[in-house]
Computed example of a mutant assay.
Amino acid sequence: MPSNPHFYIILNQVAGTGQAASIWPKIETQLKQKQIHYDLQLSHYAGHTTQLAFQFAKFKYTDQILLIIGGDGTLNQAINGLQNAQRGDIPIAYIPCGSGNDFARGVGISRDPLTVLEQILSATMPTAIDLGYYHDTTKNDHGYFVNNVGIGFDANVVSTTNHSNHKRLLNRLHLGSLAYISSLVKVFMHQDAFEVTVTADHQNHYFKRGFLVTTTNHPYFGGGVPIMPSATVDNHQLDLIVIEKLNPFFFCYLFVMMLFGRHTRYQAVHHFEGTNLAIQTKTLEFGQMDGEELGSRTFDIHYSLKSQAFWLKKQA
């Protein structure tokens, strides 16, 4: 890979309620000053980034790197475009400009756009990281995720946050992570317990009072909450966490413990790890993948691992 590669940039201007659009002139200035070659494409609608990444993968020129400027949802679409083209070997770089930016936390890159641009330009070779792959047999739906897939409480929080007015305001103030936290109390009062069966190591585990069910690729969800502190993007494992419904007082206590990464020792928290995991629900529950809504439905999801080349240099 040459020291001065060519970037194919996909910019989602509406990511982070306009943060990506506002930072692009500064990024463009840096690229021109450093005489970096690039092509720019704008993502105009939901799913457009997937199409652009797929087309890029089919007609990629030698030594080009796909650079995504947007939120985790934009990155998710790009990943799905590359993987659907069976080109996980194409390096992808990422400048986070979303609300939660959990992927940046999970892989140890800066969440400041100009700083991460320097990290990208100083990288010399791609790094392979794990991706999660899910297949939901109830709708014959499938896809790839870089962060996590959640069913129940966290997905309900995502849905509530995405449809709230305060998310837009907090994004303008660069406090997007608070948008998720502010939805927690509202969702807790309305989210019921539900039956869920987890399959791990060919054994079934039944929970009558499931509440939060998250399969994750790295420690963070919901804008920086460490749902599974030990998870990493390069251990070739997925982590699945089930938290049972609790009374409000203990849930608040458990959530505080979660902020410090100390919640996994409690009996209401169940942790599974593996390369092949599965989840089945019987009732209509909210789902989310990398912060994108999957709707309210029953789930029969089977998880496995894939690999993707990333162009990044972690912080020291």
Rank of each mutant, 00 (worst) to 15 (best):
V149N: 03
F153K: 06
Y134S: 01
A123V: 09
A46H: 08
K167R: 09
T17Y: 15
K314G: 04
L238W: 04
G291D: 06
P226L: 04
A93K: 06
P126I: 09
Y180K: 12
F54L: 13
G261H: 02
H263I: 03
K167Q: 08
F194I: 01
I69M: 01
N235G: 04
D136V: 01
S230W: 01
I79A: 12
A309K: 07
V185M: 14
Q267Y: 07
T62N: 15
H37S: 12
L254S: 12
L66Q: 09
G295N: 03
H263T: 00
P229E: 12
D192V: 08
G224Y: 13
A85N: 12
F7E: 04
S230C: 03
T160M: 01
L240R: 10
D102V: 10
H6F: 13
R168M: 12
L178D: 08
T160G: 00
P25K: 13
F188I: 11
I241Q: 12
K282L: 14
T215G: 09
G16V: 13
I129A: 00
G261P: 11
F153L: 11
K314Q: 05
A278T: 07
T215K: 13
I181C: 10
A193Y: 01
F207P: 11
G132K: 03
K58V: 05
N204I: 13
I79E: 12
K32V: 00
I279W: 05
N4M: 14
L11N: 05
T17H: 14
G210R: 04
V242Q: 03
A93G: 06
I10A: 12
L117A: 04
S230V: 10
M189C: 13
L121T: 02
Q77M: 00
Q203E: 15
G152C: 04
L169F: 13
Q308D: 05
L169A: 10
G274K: 04
T62F: 11
F145Q: 07
Q55P: 06
K313I: 00
H44F: 00
H48A: 02
F250H: 15
F255N: 06
N76M: 00
L114P: 13
F59W: 01
M189L: 13
T137L: 06
I23G: 05
I90P: 15
E293A: 10
I10N: 13
L131R: 03
F103L: 02
T137C: 02
V225R: 10
S159H: 14
A46M: 03
I69T: 01
H202F: 00
F153W: 05
I95S: 06
N76A: 11
Q203K: 14
H44Y: 01
S164A: 05
A268D: 06
L66T: 04
G152M: 14
F272G: 07
D201P: 00
S182A: 10
M189G: 00
G88K: 09
Q51K: 04
T127L: 10
T281I: 03
F207E: 11
N204C: 13
Q13C: 15
A46N: 09
P91F: 14
R265T: 09
Y8F: 12
F103P: 05
